[in-house]
Amino acid sequence: MLVKLNPVFGKELRIFERSIKISVVIFIYNIILALVAFAIFYDMLHTSRFTGSVEYKSIIQIYIIMAYIQFGMLILIIPGLTAGAISGERERQTLDILLSTQLKPWQIIMGKLQSSLLVVLLLATTSLPIVSIVFVFGGIKIVDLLILILLLVVEAVFIGTIGLFFSSLFKKTTSATVLTYTTLLFIFVGTYLFVQGVYSFEQTKNTAIVDSVTDIKGAIYVLLINPIITFAGLISKQAGGSSEIMSICNQFGNYDNNLVVKYWIGISMVIQLALSTVFVVIAQAKINPLRECKLFKKGKRNT
């Protein structure tokens, strides 16, 4: 049985096919990856001429840098695509046409989200030949690469639904884009500053107490919604170094035996997907014309 393609997603696919922008983005993205990879690769081979061996650290470094470039491109591209998804339809006066079809509001939202995820998958897939350089010398398993792609998709969903939320909330794409990037800046930087602020406050309170250990306890869990922390934790784990998440958390107390910190990556992904679901529900409710009619009728009855 064939799965029916979302009509909105199908329309976005046709736009991608006719537009040269996505091809340019993919080209630039892979050029950057290739230049970085071959620069490290050349330096590694040059060093091996004198040492007589290939350093494992240099191979892992290629993987780490390419992973962070992929994540950085995701942060830059996805909000720009989703923040104008619904507001752009309003500006072109085509949203009412979409809503007048048999499509349900949630299908419109999911179609827009799928199109943004397609970009992530395209970037991840087209970069495989470059990333495969790492597998020539070993050190990184294919499973690690698949987990990395899975995390990138989850983060793309989370970031994308934030953009769709603001896009459905505001009529102007500019307003939606600004608020999307502002919210992401708070999630990336603000959550860490919040935890740092709580730690400083607790430290001030415990100054008068002799031999006291400052511990912010559950406040650290705010960082579970921070994609950068989760991503850094996965990369440090795959690189075989010390746990980046444990290092960050232990700055604010002793979390060596904390189960949440131990399974941070999985828990973080589940929480971010749950928040994404909430954003989708609110976004589809915001563009639902039947919802407005019901509210209007209730207003009439009250008067």
Rank of each mutant, 00 (worst) to 15 (best):
211 D>V: 11
273 L>T: 05
234 L>V: 14
160 G>L: 09
264 W>I: 09
78 I>G: 11
168 S>A: 15
210 V>I: 14
158 F>L: 12
69 I>S: 01
179 L>H: 00
268 S>D: 13
85 A>T: 06
47 T>S: 13
171 K>L: 07
293 C>L: 12
221 Y>E: 09
234 L>W: 10
269 M>F: 08
269 M>N: 12
95 L>C: 03
232 A>V: 05
231 F>T: 05
75 I>Y: 07
140 I>P: 01
85 A>V: 03
2 L>C: 00
213 V>W: 01
144 D>L: 01
72 G>M: 06
53 S>R: 12
14 R>A: 12
105 P>M: 05
191 T>A: 09
163 G>Y: 07
121 L>Q: 11
132 S>I: 03
89 E>A: 06
67 A>P: 02
21 K>N: 08
36 V>P: 00
171 K>D: 11
93 Q>C: 00
144 D>S: 14
44 M>I: 03
272 Q>G: 05
180 T>W: 03
113 L>D: 02
301 R>D: 11
184 L>G: 12
110 M>E: 05
62 I>M: 11
217 K>F: 11
284 Q>N: 11
156 A>C: 02
110 M>P: 00
188 F>I: 15
165 F>E: 07
108 I>F: 05
119 V>G: 04
202 E>D: 10
281 V>W: 12
273 L>Y: 06
64 I>K: 12
121 L>K: 02
74 L>F: 04
53 S>P: 00
72 G>V: 09
141 K>Y: 10
202 E>M: 12
219 A>P: 00
15 I>R: 13
11 K>S: 09
103 L>W: 01
251 Q>P: 00
296 F>L: 13
170 F>I: 06
1 M>F: 09
81 L>C: 03
298 K>M: 14
109 I>T: 02
9 F>Q: 09
270 V>M: 13
235 I>C: 02
40 I>G: 02
5 L>K: 14
45 L>D: 04
142 I>Q: 07
175 S>L: 12
58 S>L: 13
261 V>G: 03
225 I>H: 01
131 V>F: 13
52 G>L: 04
215 D>A: 13
232 A>L: 15
65 I>E: 07
270 V>T: 12
278 V>S: 08
143 V>W: 06
289 P>D: 04
149 I>W: 11
201 F>Y: 15
48 S>Y: 02
109 I>L: 08
10 G>P: 00
233 G>F: 08
27 F>C: 14
79 P>Q: 08
70 Q>M: 14
292 E>V: 01
68 Y>L: 14
141 K>F: 08
283 A>V: 04
173 T>F: 02
286 K>G: 00
40 I>V: 11
39 A>P: 00
14 R>W: 11
192 Y>W: 13
235 I>T: 07
33 L>M: 13
8 V>Q: 10
57 K>D: 15
141 K>I: 10
242 S>R: 03
202 E>I: 02
247 S>N: 13
53 S>D: 10
102 Q>I: 03
117 L>C: 01
122 L>F: 13
103 L>A: 06
88 G>H: 11
274 A>G: 11
186 F>Q: 04
259 L>E: 14
155 E>R: 00
262 K>G: 01
241 G>Y: 06
118 L>Y: 06
138 G>T: 01
151 L>P: 01
32 I>N: 00
28 I>R: 03
23 S>K: 15
96 D>A: 09
168 S>W: 06
149 I>Y: 14
152 L>T: 09
68 Y>I: 11
